[in-house]
Design a protein around this nucleic acid. Structure first.
Length: 396
RNA sequence: GGGUAGUUGGCGGAGUGGUCAAUCGCAGCUGACUGUAAAUCAGCCGACUUCGGUCUUCGGGGGUUCGAAUCCCUCACUGCCCA
């Protein structure tokens, strides 16, 4: 048990405050209340969030109480950058919708029956100015503007709204209401997490411990973020999920093993050494990683299938067993039109480009003329389009 | 309240009367190569096209001009500085 806790306290962890206290409490057998806040602005949870969720899962398995907060209030207030936001009422609907999908996604890792679920509008919406002032008094302006990301923005001359300054108060007050013992979050959440401690003190509670987890890079090596479009989403289909993992740089393999799986640390360091010595092909390590990650969200069988699909179709460049069929109403169709029709090109221009660049082939033979007319003699043929597109044509 | 700068393609960011469908970087796409949907290299990267061209884009609207992302007016939004 002690060893397990030690791993829990270090694996993927950037910093714990206060570590000694947390360790003591975890060992004591006490049932802790673990808080995790989720911002409902985007409907998809990605693997970056899963780093934290996996930690929650560990805690849940150790018997602690998970308290999930949907930040619907903060969500409705909205992001300053989000100028075109719908009216609050509408946003509330969206939040409602997102909330459901969140529960579903979190359920892939957590036993939701045992999770306490809240929305922070339950209490934040009722706060009075008087109360907010009391909270705001717990912090100084200097503290705020010296936060790394705020300071950076101020230096760059980008706008920082007063509302943003209030954010940590809201998040911190959540901890007060829920009497959190431990809160988890990314390293970027440092200030907000610590605000919880500050406010709990202000309200006469024992301050929560705080665990900060490393942020992971997305498929392109930059920080994983919805706005970059480099995320691996928990709801991605098995083939997509496995493929996205395969498409990331080799240097992320170990980090992902550590943060996004629960493959034992011994095994992870074996893999790391194997790659360093050149005994283990990074491709194989990555494939194993990809399968493991896919397994977590889609189960053993789907993960295996996705792996096989990858090997067959991508590595060996074979045509997959099952190819989506597209039925043509007319007796013939232009090649470029077929690409658009089958969803393999978003416009005729793009279709032409793909064809002219040699991206389309049938029976190993490249088709280079976008104007080419496909007639009934192509009935049942499988087109390979680009790196991983396949489409079978059918005529009525 | 005063001053000042700005609003460009998915993002960042050039361009300041024609040669601008708009340099470049990122992301994306295609190909080559490869131990990988990694890396590297090359090309592409608004839409439509009978491949000759055509059409719609540079915050919104109006105007000047043979011609505007570039000049003028106006509206909207935003940054920064001073108070």
């Amino acid at each position: 048990m002690e060893q397990k806790i030690e791993e829990f306290l270090t694996r993927g962890v950037s910093e714990v405050i206060d570590k000694d206290n947390l360790k003591k409490r975890l060992l004591s057998g006490e049932r802790l209340r673990i808080k995790l806040g989720i911002d409902p602005t985007s409907p998809n949870l990605h693997l970056g969030r899963a780093v934290t969720l996996l930690k929650m899962k560990d805690l849940q398995e150790m018997g602690h109480q998970i308290v999930l907060i949907i930040g619907d209030f903060t969500g409705v207030i909205g992001d300053t950058s989000d100028k075109e936001s719908e009216r609050p009422m509408l946003v509330e609907d969206v939040v409602e919708e997102n909330l459901k999908t969140y529960a579903k996604q979190a359920g892939k890792l957590l036993d939701m029956d045992k999770v306490e679920l809240h929305r922070n509008s339950e209490w934040l919406g009722k706060l009075t100015y008087k109360e907010i002032t009391r909270q705001a008094n717990a912090f100084s302006v200097a503290e705020f503007i010296h936060r790394e990301n705020i300071k950076k923005r101020l230096d760059e001359g980008t706008r920082v709204s007063l509302r943003e300054v209030l954010y940590p108060l809201m998040q911190g007050y959540d901890s007060v209401v829920l009497k959190a013992d431990l809160e988890l979050g990314g390293t970027d959440q440092r200030f907000n997490l610590l605000a919880g401690r500050e406010l709990q003190r202000e309200y006469g509670q024992q301050p929560q411990d705080v665990m900060m987890l490393n942020l992971i890079e997305g498929t392109d090596g930059r920080k994983m973020s919805s706005s970059w479009g480099n995320t691996i989403n928990l709801l991605d289909e098995p083939n997509t999920m496995l493929g996205k993992v395969m498409s990331m740089g080799d240097e992320l393999i170990v980090k992902y093993f550590v943060h996004c799986t629960r493959v034992s640390m011994e095994k992870v360091s074996e893999i790391e050494k194997g790659m360093e010595k050149g005994e283990l092909n990074p491709r194989d390590a990555k494939l194993e990683l990809a399968e493991e990650i896919t397994r977590i969200y889609h189960g053993e069988e789907n993960a295996k299938e996705a792996r096989e699909y990858f090997i067959r179709t991508i590595s060996k460049k074979e045509t997959p067993k099952e190819v989506a069929e597209f039925e043509i109403e007319k007796s013939e169709i232009k090649l470029a039109e077929f690409l658009v029709f089958s969803g393999n090109a978003s416009s005729m221009s793009e279709a032409r480009r793909k064809i002219e660049q040699g991206g389309v082939s049938v029976d190993e033979e490249k088709l280079l003329d976008p104007q080419m007319i496909l007639g009934k003699d192509f009935d049942g043929k499988v087109f390979k389009i680009g790196k991983f597109g396949f489409a079978k044509i059918r005529f009525k």
